[in-house]
Design a protein around this nucleic acid. Structure first.
Lengths: 189, 189
DNA sequence: ACGCTAACTGGCACCGGGTGCCATTCACAC
DNA sequence: GTGTGAATGGCACCCGGTGCCAGTTAGCGT
């Protein structure tokens, strides 16, 4: 099987799974269901996805890679907050056609606690990347309070943005991101 | 069985479980082990703790209640950031004797991904409480961007504080909390 | 002291997610 | 064709979690 076929199957499985999840509800769909619906054996399913939960979060890793990339592109003299803002604006530049899928995904993440939990674990990698970047820009050790807090705070802000965006269909993702980062820059005092 | 006996058993189970977890590692301890070590049936174990994971997070709920309480005590005219700072300082006022236990707990939370995930779910309740409080103080709807971001950001900052505190044995928890909230108030710009 | 009731207990069978093992199949090279 | 390596998927198994139910215990009124 070529790697193109592989990602193809993965995409098929993912699409079918998301469909089933949104229709029947996450925990009323067994892995056997997913495998059968994807025309694949249960054992094979677990070779494509490490976990039932990870089907929902599929491309989060790609997004992380994109984030790291975008951060690296911002000049090292730039302030961490500005840099992070830039990076997130780039990463979240979805084409309008992708937004419905994104909405579905995020809705699942927010609705199903287990999936939310898994997402949180995934976000830790984001936090680590952001902390490293911020520490480099500030010229301080990574394990100091400031970069550690900064990194977690940025990811948290993005979560907040997604929540609000999900709740209000008319809101524009970009402007929410900008507003959130403005708050972070100015401070809440 | 009196409720006093109940919490007593729960405490015993919890203590034994934490011991086993730190010695053998979280996923090399089965629930049967925990039950047996606590001198209790497996089925009964699950009546004390809804999940193996929740054994580690035991008193987080009490802490949440304490937080809500502390927030309610701060005058409504006070700024949300100040109010949250106050509240967290109160909630995290551990007696020196409790710190070792707290350290163990937090270490487990940071080390074992599944536990971290569970903790993240628990923190959502904190975020909701903080968002409600902040919205009330700002006089805006809860579902707006600012309180939503604020709430998540505050919890994130606390997570950062715990991480740093855990990594440096000499650091004082109180001063870290203060420093983190100072950053939030001033902003990172 | 006696029995009644209600709560607590824990065994048992079961489900669903996840893994190791292994025989089979398939694509591709020679 | 034949051999080789990867992908497949069936099978048995482990573990966390739940419903069910029978046995035990604690507390109460009489």
């Amino acid at each position: 099987m070529t790697s193109a076929t592989r990602t193809l199957r993965a995409r098929r499985l993912e699409a079918v799974a998301l469909e089933l999840f949104t229709v029947r509800g996450f925990d009323h769909v067994t892995v056997d269901d997913l495998a059968a619906a994807g025309g694949v054996g249960r054992r094979t399913f677990f070779r494509y996805f490490p976990t039932k939960l990870d089907v929902v979060l599929g491309q989060l890793d790609d997004a992380l890679a994109a984030l790291v990339d975008a951060l690296a592109r911002v000049p090292t003299t730039t302030d961490p907050t500005i840099a992070a803002r830039q990076a997130f604006l780039q990463v979240n530049a979805y084409s309008p056609g992708d937004e419905p899928v994104l909405r579905r995904r995020l809705a699942l993440i927010e609705t199903v606690p287990e999936v939310a939990a898994r997402a949180a674990v995934r976000y830790e990698a984001w936090e680590a990347a952001l902390a490293r970047d911020a520490a480099a820009r500030w010229g301080c050790p990574v394990d100091e309070l400031r970069p550690q807090v900064f990194a977690r705070v940025v990811v948290a802000a993005m979560r907040g943005v997604f929540t609000v965006w999900l709740a209000s269909p008319d809101a524009e993702l970009r402007s929410l991101v900008v507003a959130a980062f403005d708050d972070l820059g100015r401070g809440f005092g």
